[in-house]
Design a protein around this nucleic acid. Structure first.
Length: 491
RNA sequence: GGCCCCAUGGUCAAGCGGUUAAGACGUCGCGUUCUCAGCGCGGAAUCGAGGGUUCGACUCCCUCUGGGGCUACCA
């Protein structure tokens, strides 16, 4: 490709970073980096009512967390293309200029119909089994007559919207990066559509075109739900005589339970990057997982760094069918990443325990080697995300709880009482309190009658009050003799 | 309703006219002289249906069925 690759991620600041948006961002970023192109972030805040305080900041923050960087954005403006917020662009009259141009060319017009009027027209069409479509109100009128109508409405104090005159007979075709040849007739877009709202803001479909053109966007990679917007946008490009970028529509991510597009209303599914971040998922794992949603590499490997994704990327391998969001797989990928980054994971595990009130603040820092060893023995390798350590620490490292009725009865059986006493004595006389030696003691206590669970459960209960847990000798060795004996004595 | 898209195991998927139809997650079984986890080994499980085209279809075409998206002064 000789043309300059420029792609963008254009979020609305309406909330946190959604998984679906994160994927759009990730693929645009990978695409840009793979092709040595430019990755741009543009804020689409034309719906002033939906903008959320801090939304933009949160989006960028989570993107950064995922490891994505950008070349141009509101905070990193390039004067040739900025500003990067549509509200600011509108304030500068950027959209107005082209709206005026379309108005002058007679390709757009002022419309004063009320929303009630529009609703009733739509209703009547549906009742007549017609597809809802906008009805042009100035049919057959000359320019002068139309201007006269405008004046009439203005005199009534009405505020107009600007509608684009759709070339009904035209058919729009494009070669979609992921879907291949596409074709949609202009008459399917539902009639003349609004390009400027009554509040003076441009609508999404219009602003995107103006900005993408002015910012010299070469490729538009976006969600499948924008397919039907494409012909609308193409007619603007043509009306203004601009070059149309290459489009690519990635499939949607689906909610496994409902089978529908993952929606912000599906509260049963964690779908904001933020939520996974809080649970202790690693950014590399999130990136890895999302990068495999709707795209597959050539080989059989599944664990990749962002850099590897960039190197391997091939847009022809983007999937055409929608993918369900599989949290189990995410957990597995995160587990894989945790193993690769134990140094950073260990302190995070401690942090989670502190937050859960299971570990005193400061204890970890003073004894990180001790706790790291403990996490290791406890099976860090088996957990999916750091917060899970809180649920998995059924082993009372820090505080002993009371025995259940059954456990108590078990420990008090004469035979077991004797066993525990022997165990305590032999441990007490151990010079080297190593896991190996402790294992030898336990083996030594084994008899024809007392073995397996009958042997281990009483010993586990005596030392830890649990019948389940990590390798007992190793844990006791780590706790040390004093701690271990204290636990037995307090039985 | 209209327009558009999609269709391989429970899930993600490879496959691009001739294959024993990869691999991964999950699941099940066995082993690792206690448990859980981990690890190792092994198993079960897929081409939605019907027509074509072809010597030969998971692969190409058509129809059906199923699923999804869009149909705003939201983006």
């Amino acid at each position: 490709m000789t043309e300059k690759i420029r792609v963008r991620y254009a979020p609305s600041p309406t909330g946190h970073l959604h998984i679906g948006n994160a994927r759009t961002a990730i693929f645009n970023w990978i695409f840009a980096r793979h092709n040595n192109g430019t990755f741009i972030i543009r804020i689409e805040d034309t719906d002033t009512a939906r903008n959320v305080e801090g939304g933009e900041e949160s989006q960028l923050d989570n993107l950064k967390w995922l490891g994505i960087d950008w070349d141009e954005s509101p905070d990193k403006p390039n004067d040739q293309y900025g500003p990067y917020r549509q509200s600011e662009r509108n304030a500068q009259g950027i959209y107005q200029k082209y709206i005026d141009e379309l108005l002058e060319k007679g390709l757009a017009y002022k419309s004063y119909k009320s929303s009630e009027q529009l609703a009733s027209e739509r209703e009547a069409q549906m009742a007549a089994k017609q597809a809802p479509h906008y009805v042009y109100e100035y049919e057959g009128l000359s320019n002068e007559e139309r201007e006269a109508k405008y004046a009439e409405f203005e005199a009534q104090g009405l505020k107009p919207v600007i509608r684009f005159r759709v070339p009904e007979e035209q058919i729009f075709e494009w070669n979609d990066i992921v879907k291949g040849p596409m074709k949609i007739a202009a008459k399917e877009v539902g009639g003349d559509w609004v390009i400027q709202k009554a509040d003076g803001m441009p609508t999404y479909n219009f602003a995107v075109v103006v900005d993408d053109h002015l910012m010299e966007i070469s490729h538009v990679l976006r969600g499948d739900d924008h397919v039907s917007n494409t012909p609308k946008q193409m007619m603007i490009y043509e009306a203004l005589g601009w070059t149309i970028p290459t489009f690519g529509h990635m499939t949607l991510i689906i909610n496994g339970e409902t089978g529908k597009k993952l929606s912000k209303r599906d509260e049963n599914v964690l779908q904001f990057v933020e939520q996974y971040r809080e649970l202790g998922y690693l950014p590399q794992a999130m990136f890895n997982f999302i990068g495999l949603l709707g795209w597959s590499p050539k080989g059989e490997d599944e664990i990749f760094t962002a850099q590897e994704f960039i190197e391997m990327f091939d847009e022809t391998r983007l999937s055409k069918s929608p993918a369900k969001f599989d949290q189990k797989k995410l957990q597995w990928i995160n587990n894989q990443w945790m193993r690769r980054s134990l140094e950073t994971v260990m302190p995070q595990l401690a942090e989670q325990l502190v937050q859960a009130g299971l570990l005193r603040e400061g204890d970890y820092q003073g004894n990180s080697a001790f706790y790291n060893k403990m996490f290791e023995i406890a099976g860090v390798e088996g957990i999916s995300y750091t917060k899970e350590i809180v649920e998995l620490v059924r082993y009372p490292f820090f505080e002993l709880h009371d025995l259940s009725e059954d456990d108590k009865a078990l420990v008090e059986e004469p035979q077991n009482d004797q066993l525990i006493a022997d165990f305590r004595n032999q441990l007490g006389s151990l010079a080297d309190f190593s896991a190996g030696n402790i294992m030898d003691v336990i083996r030594g206590l084994q008899t024809e009658d007392i073995k397996g669970r009958a042997l281990w459960n009483p010993l586990r209960l005596a030392t830890t009050r649990e019948t389940q847990g990590p390798n007992l000798p190793e844990i006791l060795a780590l706790m040390g003799k004093d701690w271990t004996l204290r636990n037995i004595d307090s039985l």
